[in-house]
Design a protein around this nucleic acid. Structure first.
Length: 908
DNA sequence: GTGTTTATCC
């Protein structure tokens, strides 16, 4: 780096055009810049055309042949062919045909070549080795590989150069198999290869992923004495890098007596491709120190290295370097440069390069589109994509992948579908990056069915396909599907760190602690904890499975915590009711120099809600915009309304909602409605409810809340009216359900269903405990009279007390000292909440109950949710009012997945 | 020799 800036005065790359040529001359004595030499014709120098004059009339023949040769020498193909065609067969020597064919080949004129060939045929010339070779060369060089091969097979030439020609031609079109099979045939016939043969065959074996064959060729090459041939060793270096043999490649390079620019480039590129960009840069600097010539390839590789490690300053220097070396007109240079700026986070630089480009290719467009996507400017990226197409540039797989990603990130489902049909129409449907991006797009846009459809149609899936689909299920709150797919995947693939990060949220969603622990073991064995994504997902999983202490322990083990890790921990404390711990963690984060974002403010405000910390909540809310420049969203306003309403500041909460700069949704009004219920404000409740019914007339849950408000005020007429209004809408609710994992097996208790094998034992225990509770006057906690059961639909009122049964099952089946961990898909009912406390006191067992909103730790007759809230709500179960009152009223993203665990046995 | 796909939090 320093050597670059010492020798080259770096000014802005954009202002160097005028002085370019002068500067290039000046720097010539230190660095030699050159563009790649044009591929010279190999055959021109190696083919000896035997001058065989077998025909009669010496002077005429000589005359015609000499004229043709003269035309050929001057490159006048038209006249050469004209003369050839006009001449009589006996006037022409083989030499003339060869010369004309050679010129056709050089001019890449297949039409003319074919004409010469037909003249040869009609003249009845027998094609000898030399003429045959020329014909093959002409056809191959003019792009007709098939015809060339046909003639080659007829003449069976033993000249190496023809074999090399065909091999390299097949390699060029990507038919490495054919190239390799020619090599094998050649060996069978005893044709000894030369350096061109081996460079080509190494390339082919490397491309085919044949490690063993490459090593065999390596040995063969040494035996034949090509071990010090720079070109051959260069191919060996490239081959070893291809298989990750970084050390072998280095050894080969070190032993090279005369490394050329290709050797250096191979080393740099090999390092960069294998993830050692830093080493690549070091080698480049070595090159500069030694004064080795630097070419376009070198610059391109080094720019990629800069992009990989985000070294913008070196990238800029190389920009100037390249401009001075006259590479600015090279599309490849500009494309790489563009991408470097983008990957180093400098969109302006990337855009400037793009705008100033003379010629652009599909790569340029893809790079600039990817640059916008990288910056989160999705609609601009989509706009560029459309502009590109309107200019007649057809998107390829790379472009499509990038734009599908943009659709995924901006939830542009319709555009995504458009691109999908383009993919199908253009036969890109079998490209894995494309299909994987499509799966991701559908999943991110919430259309899991379409995602699954694309996934199912892939015949050979890679690990990205599996990870994407598993993650898609997790994100769409389908943890059972995610875990099921995770099991399927393991039949074919070893999960990697990304798989872990994709599947852990599913464990968290189901509170599947045993499965989570199993995955944790996997993570430890494979050393995945060092990955931040994995570590955060693990902390989150343990927090959501109720093991807050373990979550905290793991969190402390994360060496470099980022915003997400802090947010996970803050949210973890919050959902367990540790508001003060959440606050101190939040403060610690800020001291660590990490600026909070929307999500971390959600986490801390929710934590305040769960712990009823009104003043603190206000403080955080105000600091959002004022100190941190984060614009509050609906979820943040909802937390403040929750805090105000819970504390009885109902009119203040109402005014707060009215003053909101964004339109309040039903959640916000619903939170206030719940507050009205707790504080028995019928009038305000009616007013608030009308706002809700206007916004969401079909959401019956708020009718239920209002019905409870009326019932508690004994306004039975109003309850009746409301019930009629509700019946018109219809009322449906999923069953309440609780589950407990014992010995890796899920035991599910559905409300009102007593089909569990241990139902009798559970009933006996619960009856016994209920009796004890009544004796100890626990029932006095139930202050409210329930709405008359006959008045309301039965299923609406029935709680079924599934959590009670699950807790009882845990007590009966777990050894003493173990914590009973129960999860519920809805809010805990007040009755069961009291039972939980009582159980923890009489059995001396700790019970952790996760409801749809938060955790309740029952210990020694107390609950972590603090019973201040219980007094206001006791006796009301969640089936009558789902935005109930333990903890906060909120139904935000903060809530747990409300799915039931369908997989009964999780052991794989 | 340049460009593309998967993950953690609220």
């Amino acid at each position: 780096m320093s050597s670059v800036s010492k020798t080259i005065p770096i000014s802005s790359p954009y202002h160097t055009h005028k002085t370019t040529s002068n500067y290039a001359k000046k720097s010539h004595n230190r660095f030699i810049f050159f563009k790649q030499p044009r591929r010279t014709c190999l055959l021109h120098s190696t083919v000896c055309v035997s001058p065989s004059f077998t025909n009669t009339t010496h002077s005429v023949t000589q005359n015609q042949n000499a004229k043709i040769n003269k035309f050929c020498e001057m490159g006048d193909l038209r006249n050469a062919i004209e003369l050839l065609t006009k001449s009589k067969s006996y006037e022409l020597g083989l030499n003339s045909y060869c010369s004309v064919l050679q010129l056709c080949a050089e001019k890449k004129s297949l039409e003319d070549g074919k004409r010469v060939h037909s003249v040869i045929i009609s003249n009845g010339i027998s094609v000898d080795e030399a003429l045959g070779a020329k014909l093959v060369f002409m056809y191959v060089n003019c792009g007709d590989l098939v015809q060339g091969r046909k003639i080659f097979d007829k003449i069976m030439n033993d000249k190496v150069f023809l074999w090399n020609l065909l091999m390299s031609e097949y390699a060029k079109i990507g038919n490495f198999r054919e190239s390799v099979s020619l090599f094998k045939k050649m060996q069978k016939l005893g044709v000894v290869g030369n350096c061109y043969t081996f460079t080509c065959v190494l390339k082919c074996f490397a491309a085919l992923g044949k490690v063993k064959e490459c090593k065999r060729v390596h040995g063969y090459v040494l035996k034949l004495g090509f071990g010090s041939n720079t070109a051959v060793v260069n191919s060996l270096i490239a081959a070893y890098f291809k298989f990750g043999g970084v050390e072998s490649a280095h050894n080969l390079f070190d032993e090279l007596s005369e490394p050329d620019v290709v050797s250096w480039n191979s080393m740099i590129n090999g390092c960069v491709v294998n993830g050692f960009s830093g080493n690549g840069l070091e080698i480049f600097i070595q090159m500069l120190i030694l004064g080795v010539e630097v070419d376009l390839t070198t610059l391109v590789s080094v720019l990629v290295a800069c992009a990989n490690i985000g070294n913008l300053s070196l990238g800029r220097a190389l920009h100037g370097f390249g401009v001075k070396a006259c590479f600015s007109e090279e599309v490849v240079f500009s494309n790489t440069l563009l991408d470097m700026y983008s990957k180093c986070g400098n969109l302006n630089g990337a855009t400037e390069v793009f705008v100033k480009m003379g010629d652009t290719t599909i790569v340029s467009w893809t790079s600039i589109i990817a640059a916008y996507v990288r910056e989160g400017l999705y609609s601009d990226a989509i706009g560029l994509f459309d502009e590109m197409q309107s200019k007649g540039v057809r998107p390829d797989i790379y472009t499509v992948t990038s734009i599908v990603h943009a659709c995924a990130c901006s939830s542009s489902l319709d555009k995504g579908r458009d691109v999908h049909s383009y993919v199908i129409k253009n036969g890109m449907g079998s490209n894995l990056p494309v299909t994987n991006a499509l799966i991701n797009m559908y999943a991110k846009c919430g259309s899991v069915e379409e995602a699954r459809l694309v996934f199912s149609k892939i015949p050979v899936k890679d690990i990205v396909s599996w990870n994407t689909m598993i993650g898609g299920y997790s994100q769409n709150l389908l943890p059972n599907e995610a875990l099921e797919l995770f099991l399927d995947m393991q039949k074919q693939f070893k999960p990697d760190d990304i798989t872990m990060a994709c599947v852990l949220p599913a464990c968290a969603g189901l509170a599947a602690l045993d499965k989570g622990r199993e995955i944790h073991g996997h993570i430890l064995r494979r050393g995945y904890f060092s990955d931040l994504h994995v570590a955060c997902a693990l902390v989150d999983m343990y927090a959501k499975c109720g093991l807050l202490v373990l979550a905290q322990l793991l969190f402390d083990m994360i060496p470099k915590k980022d915003l997400i890790s802090w947010t996970v921990m803050i949210a973890g404390y919050g959902m367990h009711g540790f508001g003060n711990e959440a606050i101190s963690t939040f403060n610690e984060m800020r001291i660590a120099g990490i600026e909070p974002d929307e999500s971390s403010f959600s986490a801390i405000l929710n934590a305040c809600s769960h712990s009823g910390l009104l003043n603190e909540g206000w403080k955080f809310f105000n600091s959002m915009r004022n100190e941190c420049g984060v614009e509050p969203k609906l979820e943040h306003y909802a937390c403040v309304v929750d805090l105000l309403a819970r504390m009885g500041n109902l009119s203040k909460a109402y005014k707060f909602i009215e003053s909101m700069p964004i339109k309040p949704d039903t959640t916000i009004w619903g939170v206030l409605l719940s507050g009205c219920r707790i504080h028995h404000d019928v009038k305000l409740a009616e007013k608030v409810a009308e706002h809700i019914f206007e916004l969401e007339p079909d959401n019956t849950r708020y009718y239920v809340v209002l019905a409870n408000v009326y019932a508690e005020a004994e306004k039975w007429e109003e309850v009746k009216k409301l019930r009629k209004r509700m019946q018109k809408r219809g009322f449906k609710q999923n069953p309440g359900c609780s589950w407990i994992e014992v010995g890796g097996k899920f035991n599910i208790f559905v409300a009102g269903n007593s089909k569990h094998p241990q139902a009798k034992k559970i009933d006996v225990l619960l009856s016994k405990l209920t009796m004890q509770m009544q004796n100890e006057d626990y029932s006095s906690m139930f202050r409210y009279v329930l709405i008359n059961e006959d008045d309301m639909e039965k299923e609406m009122i029935q709680c079924g007390h599934s959590e009670k049964s699950a807790m009882a099952f845990g007590i009966l089946n777990l050894p003493p000292g173990r914590t009973v961990r129960v999860s519920k898909n809805r809010r805990v009912c007040g009755d069961c909440h009291e039972m939980g406390k009582f159980m923890s006191k009489t059995t001396k067992m700790e019970i952790v109950l996760r409801d749809s909103n938060r955790f309740h730790h029952f210990k020694d007759g107390l609950c972590s949710c603090r019973d201040a809230f219980i007094a206001a709500m006791a006796g009301f179960d969640e089936s009558r009012e789902s935005a109930s009152s333990i903890g906060c009223f909120l139904d935000s993203k903060f809530h747990f997945c409300q799915c039931l665990p369908l997989i009964m046995r999780m052991d794989s």
